[in-house]
Amino acid sequence: MYGQWRGPLLRYLLALGLPKADAEDVGQEVFLALCHHLHRDGGRENLRGWVFRVGHNLALQRRTQLGRTVEPVEVLDPAPTPEELALLSCRRERLQAVVAALPERDRWCLLLRAEGLRYREIAEVVEISLGAVAAALARSVGKLAAVEGR
């Protein structure tokens, strides 16, 4: 579980705007909490949703403690070649600008979906209805498509 979900969770926490050190702390807290949860014979249904829900809530608390809204940090992948980067950078920047400008709840839904969560899981993490998740994602898709010129 740790190996499978740690990367996606950290990516989500970073995308929420936590500084790297804080995202790592929160990630550790989540998996520690998961250990306690399992040790206490807590429910084992949909543990991925559980991990993201706890991570999401801890991240919001951490942001409040930091006393400011931190803008998501753009971290470029060092693996692509310079040619690939040149091709991708404009598009990535456009998409990131759209994502950054989304209402916060819409952004959460989009980022959670990008990490592979199902709609029901997203609704549980963000604590909104399935219909609200669908509406948020549809709005985001519309804005992404508009910036892509589709």
């Binding site: 598009r91 990008a114 990490e115």
Partner: peptide, 21 residues
């Protein structure tokens, strides 16, 4: 349209960040 856009965004989102982290 919905499935394609979400999948494509997911690929860009996942492809661009974890290594740099």
């Amino acid at each position: 349209e919905l499935a394609g856009a979400l999948r494509e965004f997911s690929a860009i989102h996942r492809g661009g960040r974890p290594v740099a982290w």
